[in-house]
Write a protein that binds this DNA or RNA. Structure first.
Ligand SMILES: O=c1ccn([C@H]2C[C@H](O)[C@@H](COP(=O)(O)OP(=O)(O)OP(=O)(O)O)O2)c(=O)[nH]1
Ligand SMILES: [Mg+2]
Length: 323
DNA sequence: TCTCAGCGCCG
DNA sequence: CGGCGC
DNA sequence: GAGA
């Protein structure tokens, strides 16, 4: 809808999403520029646009933008997994206009190749109940490897939406403090789990998190999974997290992204810092706002306690759909 | 005019 | 490191 | 895009 700005316009998009969010929260309909201007996220430009929509039922600027074929191609290319704004622009300037052009790029990464071959699959929303089925497959396999493992469905599924863009999962184990600790470490589990599910034919391809020769920093695995009776490849993300960081991980992986960004900004305003590993205080930042010291841990295991420490009331996952 | 979250993985 | 993704 |  309001996604008609693609090119180097991520902040404009963020502005629109914030405004949409405040608009949703309004109980009373907002009809005039005067009303709109009072709302957070609405400045003169957006208020003008709102008034135009209310009065005429359309937005001239939007109709014009539909004719922008360059934006349409850039949008198409960015729909490829592994292609972002820069690659899309570079390819466009090189004459790429469709997926077939893109498919024969010599600089195509293995990720992008899969992204093109499965373009339609990956851009198809997943019904809620199918997400749960994928989860069951992974959970059974995990429990089979180690009965102590715990799995959670995250992302938009946890926020209660009816269709999901992908499948987001967390695998953890009570008592763990580091993903590399122990005989059957979580890292080992992830490796074992993904190889096993690939051999079963459930996981179709690995897009990130392949065991690199010697290196071992694998806390995540992104790829594709498929249910035999559905036949569509789905994007699936599996994270392993230490039990000690479960709360921060749940908070992070539940989102949505705008919610995470606003709650993290709130943390900064309160002199703290929030990431997927925990909430920290006494963070030392240099003059360029870059972190020098991580600070000391406030809370990481308990999601509710992170809300408390930030001084905000608990929000159910479904209340975290921002924008 | 500056900022807009914070971090993991890959080539 | 830049790029991309979550 | 808004906000400081
Ligand atoms: O830029 C981002 C993107 C995602 N996330 C977190 C929040 C998000 O909820 C979660 C999973 O990401 P995903 O891209 O799968 O989003 P989603 O909320 O699950 O929506 P979708 O239904 O499109 O998968 O990771 C962020 O913190 N920042
Ligand atoms: Mg998701």
């Amino acid at each position: 809808m309001e996604y008609y700005k693609q090119i180097n316009e991520i902040w404009r998009v963020q502005g629109y999403r914030k405004a949409i969010n405040t608009l949703r929260q309004q109980k009373q309909p907002v009809r005039t520029k005067q009303d709109a201007l009072k709302l957070p996220g609405f400045g003169h430009q957006l208020s003008d646009k709102l008034e135009e929509i209310v009065k005429t039922g359309k937005l001239t600027r939007l109709i014009e933008s539909k004719k922008d074929s360059r934006a349409a191609v850039l949008g198409l290319l960015e729909g490829i997994f592994g292609v972002g704004p820069n690659t899309a622009r570079e390819w466009y300037n090189d004459g790429v206009r469709n997926l077939s052009n893109a498919r024969v790029r010599p600089d195509l990464t293995p990720q992008q190749r899969v992204g093109i071959d499965r373009y339609h699959d990956f851009n198809t929303r997943i019904p809620r109940n199918e997400v749960a089925q994928h989860f069951s497959v992974v959970e059974s396999a995990a429990r089979n490897i180690d009965s102590g493992l715990r799995c959670f469905i995250m992302g938009s599924y946890r926020r209660g939406v009816q269709t999901c863009g992908d499948i987001d999962l967390i695998v953890t184990k009570p008592g763990t403090k580091r993903i590399e600790e122990g005989e059957k470490s979580l890292m080992w589990v992830l490796q074992k789990l993904t190889t096993q599910l690939t051999a079963m034919g459930f996981l179709k391809v690995c897009l990130l998190g392949k065991d690199k020769g010697g290196k071992d920093s694998n806390s995540k695995w992104y790829g594709a999974s498929m249910l035999e009776d559905i036949g569509i490849w789905r994007r699936i993300d599996i994270l392993i997290v230490p039990w000690s960081e479960l709360g921060a991980s749940l908070l992070y992986f539940t989102g949505n992204d705008l919610f995470n960004r606003s709650i993290r900004m709130l943390a900064v305003k309160k002199g703290m810092s929030l990431n997927q590993h925990g909430l920290f205080k006494d963070v030392i930042r240099d003059k360029n706002w870059k972190k020098i010291h991580r600070g000391t841990l406030v809370e990481a295991h308990d999601e509710r306690k992170i809300f408390e420490a930030l001084g905000i009331k608990w929000l159910e996952p479904k209340e975290r759909n921002v924008g």
